[in-house]
């Protein structure tokens, strides 16, 4: 079906017949931070690679971003989640550079925080609010439907607003909380990026699964788009129609969104 469409009309997500991504994307270098206790760093790097970009490992203890074009703060249990999830990692030397670059007046650095990475971003105050224990007090792993509420961010440009996607969710401190004023502002300013659909798996306020900062370059979410990037190893369902066993790759759009935005820019 894609052959009859103009190149610009080829859907960027949900179509995995495109085997060769735009070679220009490979020039985009995306840093993936590893803290002690980080678990999903290799998965995030794989997602960047499958989207066509070039992943680059960053080390928590080094206050140097090595001129990367964007940064992913991946999931896991940095520093064992001791003290408070993300609290110690937020003070790591590399994070001071991330905060600085993400807050720059010109060309702010795109930053994506996934799960523990989201918790770390709230601890650095790049994003408002906080995560507390799931309301049912258990770790939960499930294939989660999300609605992409806005495509006006560095990480969701390839989606249509309102698009539903399915990505794995797995956490134990995933309940998003914020004061009423903050929640109101997030809603009013269109900064709720991902919302839980059908099931709110952890008691998050307003069914919020992910949010962004004012400029949309910093996005954090609890579910794991990097675990839905490769047919055969993702969820068994998709927001784009029927997929086979573990055929869901809806999360890839998060990574292609970044790469496409940076190549265009």
């Amino acid at each position: 079906m894609a052959e009859s469409l103009a190149a610009s009309e080829v859907p960027l997500v949900g179509d995995f017949s495109q085997s060769t991504p735009n070679p220009a994307l490979a020039d985009v270098r995306v840093g993936v931070i590893t803290f002690p206790g980080t678990l999903d760093d290799r998965d995030a790097s794989r997602a960047v690679r499958l989207a066509g970009g070039t992943p680059l490992p960053l080390w928590h203890d080094e206050a140097d971003l090595h001129k990367v074009d964007a940064v992913i703060v991946p999931g896991g249990f940095s520093y064992g989640d001791y003290l408070r999830a993300g609290a110690i990692a937020a003070k790591a030397p590399v994070m001071s550079k991330v905060v600085e670059a993400a807050s720059a007046a010109d060309n702010p650095l795109p930053v994506l925080g996934i799960c523990n990475g989201f918790q770390i971003l709230t601890e650095t105050h790049l994003l408002p609010g906080s995560m507390i224990k799931n309301d049912h007090r258990k770790f939960i792993c499930r294939d989660q439907t999300l609605r992409v509420e806005t495509n006006q961010t560095s990480w969701t440009g390839d989606f249509a607003a309102g698009q539903e996607i399915v990505v794995p969710l797995k956490n134990q401190d995933g309940q998003y909380v914020a004061d009423p004023k903050t929640l109101e502002a997030l809603e009013a300013e269109g900064r709720v990026v991902f919302r839980y659909v059908d099931v709110n798996p952890n008691g998050s306020r307003n069914d919020i699964a992910g949010i962004c900062n004012e400029r949309g370059n910093v996005v954090g979410l609890m579910p794991h788009p990097e675990h839905a990037v490769e047919p055969g190893f993702g969820p068994s369902s998709s927001g784009f129609g029927t997929v086979g066993l573990r055929g869901g790759a809806d999360g890839l759009g998060v990574f292609t969104s970044l790469l496409n935005q940076l190549v265009k820019a």
Partner: peptide, 14 residues
């Protein structure tokens, strides 16, 4: 029980 275990991490679970 199994929903309290991470089955996705490492990205190689078929």
């Amino acid at each position: 029980i199994t929903n309290q275990y991470d089955r996705y991490v490492q990205g190689n679970t078929a």
